[in-house]
Amino acid sequence: MNTTAQTPLWEVFIRPRNGLAHRHCGSLHAADATLALQAARDVYTRREEGNSIWVIPSSQIVASDPQDKEALFDPAGDKIYRHPTFYDIPDDVGHM
């Protein structure tokens, strides 16, 4: 079989419409940024899914390790005083 160097992987983010953030919708392989944008348009916007595309080389994304999940996120678990419902306000004060 004819093997070539692996074509880099890109992550694709689409903004469905103005007013919304770009959202991750998938990934694809492309040799460079121009081809990645064109491929993203063909693969992920065949039905008017958006009006703006970001493509980012997957190798550039720094991700947290799932093994660190507890260390990173558990400390927030017992801080219920960060939520509005932790505080009692009498009903007759009305909406606050």
Binding site: M1, N2, T4, A5, T7, A30, A31, D32, L35
Partner: peptide
């Protein structure tokens, strides 16, 4: 399709490298 597309993949990578 895979074999006849090989030159396209190679050219695209070579171009990206050159850029």
């Amino acid at each position: 399709a895979w074999e006849e597309g090989a030159w396209v993949r190679e050219a695209a990578l070579a171009y990206a490298e050159k850029q």
